[in-house]
Design a protein around this nucleic acid. Structure first.
Lengths: 194, 194
DNA sequence: GAGGCAATCTTGTCAGTGTCAAGTTGTGCG
DNA sequence: CGCACAACTTGACACTGACAAGATTGCCTC
């Protein structure tokens, strides 16, 4: 980060020409905005103002608005992959999926907003594939029984993803209330996958 | 609709001053755009051009960009409510939920994009409550067993919503392939809710 | 240490958009 | 018939994303 005593209102001449870590600064500012008001409220110029740089500076690191969002999504899939790998079994992976959505709501939203992303971006596709591998690994660790593992994977993913999505959209405020969402999901998964 | 021989390139003087059903025309055009490229690609001025009216005409019917999207969401919840009411049991309600998402992808996307909507809009909240009632009704119809009905509702909704969301985002193209998604969901729900 | 080079950031500009205000045209109702 | 209101237009303003061209800086090499 740049020195703390430098704010965006200061004239450009007194600020160092180089920010230091502008890329990271823009990313975190973007995550703040998205978590608060959604991806639609994102403005490159606003992010530039927050970082105290000129309006065209972000373009150098992300090229596009789409480029910025794509980077966020890729980072999100990376984080999700490492989180899922630490899960002991499938149910725990689901709990971690929900926790990820709650701890990184901005990442989560952007990751599953295909209209905002550059679908063929290399970083994105590889990160997404990594997360997919982690998910499949968790599924294969469970006792197969007589169920098609691919179907089981879709079922688990759908359940966790739906719960997380509805949670973030405040659609479960009624039923879940002030209970710990992860605990609710845990009992829910236990009842279903008995 | 306005007469078919009138296109937007024609000078305003030769077009009738009143469109006829501009509100509906804007809505359907918006649904087309959203289904194709997502809500982010929506432009009020573009919709006005498609309908062959001036750039400020849509504002008279929807006030805002947010107002337009809120109307779409409300319409969507209304459609979903009537669809769910026709379901015989809970599993069938889930299948209908998935079918709704596939047949009305634009509605579905907007309905669950809280950042784009006027949350306190009356039409929206009542339509949403109606759909919620329909869902709860489907849940209550199932044999309770020893499960908390609220938890069962959350489980069913999460599963259907997650499946539908992932499906629309092309995240299940691999596992589901060219199979009929509704049929996949049916067997999936049957295995889980046995 | 000096020179050059590429990365980083700035300034300027353009078309497009949402939104508001004020005016114009048509319609239905008393 | 006329009048009030709804539907639509015209005009304007601030804001945004994107591009081009120039300025500044750190770094790498000799």
């Amino acid at each position: 980060m740049a020195p703390a005593d430098i704010d965006s209102t200061e004239p450009a001449s007194r600020r160092p020409y180089h920010h230091g870590d502008l890329r990271r600064a823009i990313l975190t500012a973007a995550l703040d905005v998205i978590a608060a008001d959604g991806p639609a409220a994102l403005s490159l110029r606003d992010l530039a103002r927050r970082a105290g740089v000129s309006h065209a500076a972000p373009a150098h690191h992300f090229k596009d608005r789409t480029g910025l969002l794509t980077s966020i999504a890729a980072e999100g899939f990376g984080l999700l992959a490492t989180t899922l790998r630490e899960a002991s079994d499938l149910k725990e992976a689901g709990v971690r999926y929900v926790r990820f959505a709650r701890e990184h709501p901005a990442h989560f939203q952007v990751m599953f907003a295909p209209g905002l992303l550059r679908a063929d971006d290399l970083e994105l596709t590889t990160a997404r594939a990594l997360a997919g591998d982690a998910l499949r690994e968790s599924v294969s660790a469970v006792d197969p029984g007589d169920i098609d593992p691919r179907l089981a994977g879709v079922a688990a993913w759908s359940l966790a993803h739906g719960f997380a999505t509805l949670l973030l959209g405040h659609n479960l405020d009624g039923p879940v209330g002030d209970k710990d969402p992860e605990e609710v999901f845990r009992t829910l998964a236990a009842t279903l996958f008995r």
